[in-house]
Design a protein around this nucleic acid. Structure first.
Lengths: 333, 333
DNA sequence: CCCATTTTTGCAAGCGAGTGCAACAAGCAG
DNA sequence: CTGCTTGTTGCACTCGCTTGCAAAAATGGG
């Protein structure tokens, strides 16, 4: 079964009684075709079910319209909503997303970029992991655009979109301080990616500025399960924290559940919690979590706008602000 | 900036001192090339950073290796995990996923399929919505494979993967009956898709068989928020249900939160709840929801296996079983 | 009505690869 | 040495499209 009998421009041309170029031009915005021929071509195309072959077009035009999204653990709420925003906005800019899942091995971000090159993607957007410099250089040299979201490592020529994590962490500290908390803790994973570390640094720095100790605990990856373990570790300390900033919401949910059901602590009266990302679950009544919102639409918009530019601007780094979403997991507010 | 200077087979051939065909054959498994030339080609390719142009290859071979995933609201937990499974398994079968987001307008499933045709996708997998017959016919006629997941409407030639929703609903009823419940309710959305309706039918049918009334309430879409509204409606009835089967987990979470925080009902002692999908949140301590697991890996495996077949089998419909995951939202167990 | 513009149209040359075919080389049996 | 098989290689055509170029048609001004 390799019938694969797509109808080609030739057939449309024959049926419409015009040349193949006429068909081509009909489907090329801005090309010179008379109203009459265009009508006949459209009609024939409709009747035959013709669709321009984007593979062939990409080959000729030397631009495929494809943008690769490189991501692991894509069912994580934050990732999923970012992907949703990106695919939506890419489509509005008449590009199409190829999704490459890098869950498997470690070098697979490199593999993913090779795929991107093979399909002559116009650009790649990296949401997870960090590829080797040699391969990113190859991408850039080949004229493929590169967007790094929350990756932070430098790659000249690539667009880097980051949040102001340090500042958010600082604001979180102040909010907790105003809520009357005095024993601060930071619940982190062991992932140690730049943006996660920036949150930790920012929170610690704020502590130092106010002359207050900040307990830091790190465990596993940024998941619900890690949150539970971190709760275990933090809440059994001699001086129990009354304020915990969690490196992301998923972890915060796990931590809150453990605090509540395992340690019988009431949030926010006995323990204040702040998260990061503003995933949907943060707004659920059970959590009602005060958190920082990832501006997914802004992120996607910046990325797509940059891809649409003819010549990428000088400044290829964006630092976006994460807004604090006040909910019930912190007193006051 | 349209440099786009990818290296071509010609350049590799020149550098290796062989013909272009030799390069082509080197990268075509099973083609006849001597060990010596292959070595030289590989070496030159490596040095130049050559990657076969999949656009051109797809054009010639008349198969692109692209599979379109057509989906809306892809940040929904169940959808996201299905996408993760699909992309992972497609890649293992050396195919690549194109993700088409159909959030926007209503006819956009049709639009998506047009895109799939334009990119000469080998197949399309539809997770949301239902395209017009005319366009699916065009896909099939063009030799493009079609997979419908939980769509249920018939399309000859397409693979249809469904769950045994009716049976799951029946088992759910029996479990609730055994838990000692007597006032049964079914919380549904107004989406009315076949698989959701099958769950409702199945649950009602089980009720009839046991001579017990089943209250059905429908509202909005299958979201957390709808769950809250449905709780409001169901739990204010003169005879309050003590067993609610929710059409999916998201809705169940909303319903449980409302039951708990708004109506002060304890789960499972005063109210038993069963969901569907087994999203990650169902396992969180706050919900600890008894539910039916969507066999996402099986679904993905069936889809990919069918795509790999040279000639699609006669029987192009799969009905998979959803396993009951016992947790704490139902007494006993 | 004629000539100069402008618009439309078709031809043909690519884009980067795969592959049938024939030429060629090597290996081997007779 | 000849004839034949087996394995490699290059030529040239093809896939479906875009686009520069020049010819043809349409338009308009004088």
């Amino acid at each position: 079964m390799s019938r694969r009998i797509f109808v080609s421009a030739k057939e449309v041309a024959d049926r419409a009684g015009v040349s193949r170029s006429a068909v081509s031009r009909t489907f090329t915005p801005g090309a010179s075709v008379s109203e009459e021929t265009r009508r006949r071509v459209i009609e024939a195309a409709e009747a035959l079910g013709y669709h321009v072959n984007h593979l062939a077009r990409g080959l000729m035009r030397n631009e495929s319209g494809i943008v690769c999204l490189i991501v692991s653990e894509l069912d994580t709420p934050y990732r999923a909503s970012l992907i949703r925003a990106l695919t939506g906005q890419l489509q509005s800019a008449s590009k199409i997303a190829m999704l490459i899942n890098t869950d498997r091995s470690d070098d697979s971000v490199d593999q993913a970029l090779r795929q991107a090159i093979s399909y002559r993607a116009d650009a790649s957007i990296i949401l997870s992991g960090m590829p080797d410099r040699s391969i990113t250089d190859l991408c850039l040299k080949s004229g493929q655009r590169l967007v790094l979201i929350n990756r932070d490592e430098d790659r000249d020529g690539a667009l880097m979109i980051n949040l102001n994590d340090r500042d958010a962490a600082r604001r979180s500290f102040i909010a907790l301080l105003r809520a009357g908390c005095r024993n601060f803790a930071f619940a982190n994973s062991e992932a140690m990616t730049p943006s996660l570390m920036a949150r930790e640094e920012g929170f610690r720095a704020a502590g130092r500025e106010h002359g207050l100790e900040v307990t830091v605990e790190r465990f596993g990856s940024t998941t619900y399960q890690s949150g539970a373990v971190l709760a275990q570790r933090l809440l059994t300390r001699e001086t129990r924290p009354d304020a915990i900033f969690c490196v992301n919401d998923l972890l915060a949910c796990g931590l809150m559940d453990a605090a509540r059901f395992q340690f019988n602590l009431a949030v926010p009266s006995e323990l204040c919690v702040v998260g990061f990302d503003d995933i949907e679950q943060a707004s659920w009544t059970s959590y009602n979590l005060t958190t920082f919102a990832q501006p997914v639409d802004r992120i996607a918009a910046e990325a797509v706008a940059w891809l649409d530019q003819v010549t990428p601007a000088q400044t290829n780094s964006r630092r976006l602000e994460a807004d604090l979403v006040w909910r019930g997991s912190v007193r006051g507010g």
